[in-house]
Structure formats: C-alpha cells, structure tokens
C-alpha cells in the first residue's frame, strides 16, 4: 500500500502519453493523483478529454502508463492486477457486449470466465431490473438497458470496489433515480464506489468525496462539502433598505479593505473574514443592511471554474480546451 490504511484506491503521479506517428504525442495524464477511501461513494469528474477514461483504463490494466504508481485494495497494479481483479467490478465508458447474445448468456459466460457461481446471474439481473428481458438479445436493448446490463456485469462478482464510468448515461429519469438508490445501497453494504459522471447534480447528491481532473492533472479533491466550501470564496450578498445607497456602501466597504462587486440590486462582497464585519462597517456610516446571505456554490459551478470549461457567449469551446488551474 502506498499510503493510508483505509485507502481502497491510490494513484500517485500517473503519466500517460499517447504517441501517434501521424498526429504526434498527446499527454493524457500529467502526474495525476487520486485517493479513494474505503466505503465511500467517490465522484470522479472532468471535462471530455481530461483523462478520466484513460485513468480508469490504466487502473484496470487496459492501458500501460508511462509513469506513476497505482494500487487497488492494497495491491500494486498492474503487477498484482490478476490477483485483485476478482474483487473489482468495473464498466469503462459505453457498455460493450456481443450484440447477438442475450443478457443471460452474456452474464453467464462472464460468470464462467470469472469462476463466479451461476446462481449470481439471476440475482444481478433482478438487481438492475432486467429480469424479464434477460433472454432477449442485447442488440435489441436500448442504451439504458445496456447500461443496466453493464452495471449487472460489474456487480456479478460481488466486488469490494466498484468502478462505474458514466453509469447513468442513457437512463431515463426513473432509471437515474434507481441507479442513485443502488449506489447508496451498495455503499451502505460496505462497497466502495468510484463514479465517473457528468451529471453533477447526481454526484453532489450521492458522493461523499470527489476528485476533479483537468488536462490530465488533479485540480481538486476531498469531501464534497469541503471542495464546495473551498471554492465558495467566503463571499456574501448584501442588500440595503434602499438600492440607491448601494454605490455609497460599496465605497465604504472598499475603503475598509473588502472587494466589492456592485450589482443593480445588491453588492457581492468578498475578501472578508466574517459576515458580521459588513453589518458593523456599514452601520458605522448609517447604512443599514436589509439582507446578508452567504454566496452558495454548487458542484457544477466549481467544476466549471476549476476546469475552465464554462461556456462563453459567442465562443465555441473545443474538446481538450480547458484553462490550466493550479492544483
């Protein structure tokens, strides 16, 4: 184990460069770090082309890294991956199955290959809601049904670590909620879940911690609440009894050392230690606060800020086009 006794997944300084004779070299991972503690639901976030799938594929032995160290369940990978693979369930990117086999056959063959009891097949089909369609060919399935089958295949070996890349992709709203409940249920049973997703509202709801990757580097990590707090900026929204007093109030606060953004009906004040300081300072100049509220951020705004992928009017951002943000 690299560090920490409860870490289920550890990545240190992972590097991967794709080389093409015609397109040259492209650095997909540039010293990426990640730690997932046992029993957590961990969100793994990043814009398209940021290195998420490369990280997961490298972790699972599908891609060879150029440097760095990885460990799963205390075993160094890829060296010890064959020993630990039976304890890790994973789906990587879009679900991929042989289209002419039924879900039942697909899982049954995987169970044989992984030496998992066949009795587990109907259990996971029931769990993901495919029981009644299990004997139909996969080619007749919708994307959401294939996604359910992919999750079933990952759950087949009752893993200690479950890695899911975009598990809600293609699911209907009911399916997304079922998937959310399933994640919670699995986590409650002691399973560690790593969840890569672009549905940030979902991630915020069900994840205990997150890692955000951009341009192949970690730009944020930790418990969701901490990451949000770190990027809220400690700002407050200030409203006065009369909006005409806002310019004067702004001058007072700037003179006192705060940073102020003057809006038509309120002030956005940052760079202060305590919100009470604003009330006290303005009251000293006969300006009375009508409303004082902390600025709240959600995971989406933090994600867009950290990865530099917020849409800009009139511009068409290209895949891989992110702003470098210090880790």
């Amino acid at each position: 184990m690299l560090s920490g006794v409860t870490a289920v997944l550890e990545i240190e300084g992972l590097r991967k460069t794709y080389r093409s004779r015609f397109r040259g070299a492209r650095q997909a991972l540039d010293g990426f770090d990640m730690v997932v503690e046992a029993g957590q639901v961990h969100g793994f976030l990043g814009p398209n082309g940021s290195g998420k799938t490369t990280t997961l594929r490298t972790l699972l032995g599908l891609i060879r890294p150029n440097g760095g160290r990885m460990a799963i369940l205390g075993e160094e990978v890829p060296v010890r991956l064959p020993a630990v693979a039976g304890r890790v369930g994973a789906i990587v990117e879009s679900p991929q199955f042989f289209p002419h086999f039924s879900a039942q056959d697909t899982l049954s063959l995987l169970a044989d290959a992984g030496e998992v009891p066949q009795a587990r097949v109907p259990e996971v089909l029931e769990l993901v809601g495919l029981r009644d369609r299990a004997k139909e060919r996969v080619k007749t399935y919708s994307l959401g049904m294939k996604q359910r089958l992919a999750v079933a295949s990952a759950l087949l070996k009752s893993p200690e670590l479950l890695i899911l890349d975009e598990p809600a992709n293609g699911l209907d709203p009911g399916g997304i909620r079922e998937m959310r409940d399933l994640m919670r249920q699995l986590s409650a049973s002691g399973m560690t879940v790593v969840l890569s997703s672009h549905i940030l509202g979902e991630v915020q709801q069900i994840c205990d911690s997150v890692t955000i990757i951009s341009l192949g580097r970690r730009v944020a990590s930790g418990p969701v609440a901490e990451v949000l707090a770190q990027h809220s900026g400690g700002g407050v929204v200030v409203r006065l009894e009369s909006a005409t007093d806002l310019p004067q109030a702004a001058q007072v606060l700037v003179a006192a050392g705060a940073r102020v953004d003057l809006k038509p009906d309120h002030l956005l004040v940052t760079g202060i230690e305590k919100p009470a300081w604003v009330t006290r300072t303005l009251a000293g100049h006969d300006l009375y606060v009508n409303e004082l509220a902390p600025v709240t951020v959600d995971l989406e705004s933090v994600f867009l800020e950290l990865t530099g992928t917020a849409p800009v009017a009139g511009q068409h951002r290209q895949v891989d086009q992110s702003v470098e943000v210090p880790a």
Partner: peptide, 9 residues
Amino acid sequence: MNLLLWRPR
C-alpha cells in the same frame, strides 16, 4: 475488453 476486465492476463 470486457473479458479482460475479468481476466487481466
């Protein structure tokens, strides 16, 4: 690829 997730050798 799916099979290799089960049998990495």
